[in-house]
């Protein structure tokens, strides 16, 4: 399968073509089947579906955390099935940002260190530049006072915002969020959603996108587009 011709306006930032993921075991389980899905620059896409429908599995395929059994995943026009694990990791580090339902911050590191972690792994900036950028992101998310605190010294909403700050650290093209408000109260949920919305709307040239997996239909209603998954397949008509 050849990669589509690159075009900054029409080329999807992430795309799956016929992506199927089957877990082999005594009884093979199909997580997603024949998914054709594309995320264009400037889009805020919500992936919804009942529990176990395969929406998180789709997100993991989009985020190169998992490989499709058949089909292909393109990131910024680049086919990824032929890439080594390390090459996929490098692509993930440079172009994608993750936010999970649980914050998944490193418990021994401060908020600042957690945000700096992807930058240090990428190694494009100096230590001072990384520190300045991490502080800038934390400040933009209302967390300048929390920079020196460890995750266990922060509230749930603050931790999730630090997780978003970490996802933004390397200035990714796409943020992939898996139930990012699942553990938050209403106020914190609205705050997190606002941050993600703002990321898409204020990105230079609207060149970035957010894909959010949620079972919250109110939250999904605020997205530009909604994709509904049922039994591992994209449903023709999302429920209202």
């Amino acid at each position: 399968m050849s990669a589509p011709a690159p075009d900054s306006r029409t080329t999807p930032l992430i795309e799956t073509r016929g992506a199927t993921r089957v877990i082999n075991g005594d009884v093979p389980t199909t997580l997603v089947a024949g998914i054709d899905f594309a995320v264009l620059p400037g889009e805020f896409v919500a992936v919804t579906g009942p529990s176990g429908s395969g929406k998180s599995s789709l997100l993991y395929l989009l985020g190169l955390l998992d490989k499709p059994t058949t089909g292909e995943v393109f990131v910024n026009g680049q086919a990824t099935s032929g890439l080594s694990e390390d090459a996929r990791a490098a692509l993930r580090l440079a172009t994608l940002g993750f936010v999970f339902q649980f914050h998944f911050l490193l418990p021994e590191f401060s908020a600042l260190d957690n945000v700096m972690l992807p930058m240090r792994a990428l190694g494009r900036l100096t230590e001072a530049q990384m520190r300045a950028r991490a502080m800038e992101i934390l400040s933009s998310l209302g967390l300048p006072e929390q920079a020196r605190k460890r995750p266990d010294q922060m509230s749930g909403g603050q931790r999730q915002r630090v997780a978003i700050a970490r996802a933004l650290a390397n200035d990714p093209l796409v943020i992939l969020a898996d139930e990012p408000t699942g553990n938050l109260d209403t106020q914190s949920s609205a705050q997190v959603l606002g941050i993600l919305r703002k990321l898409v709307d204020t990105a230079p040239g609207r060149g970035k996108a957010v894909v959010i997996v949620t079972h919250d239909l109110d939250l999904a209603a605020q997205a530009d587009r909604r994709v509904h998954i049922v039994d591992g397949r994209i449903a023709a008509t999302p429920p209202r």
Partner: peptide, 16 residues
């Protein structure tokens, strides 16, 4: 194990 998974999900290669 969970921290390792997070580091790898962020994009740290296995060798690191």
């Amino acid at each position: 194990t969970r921290d390792i998974a997070i580091l790898k999900s962020l994009g740290l290669p296995a060798r690191t």
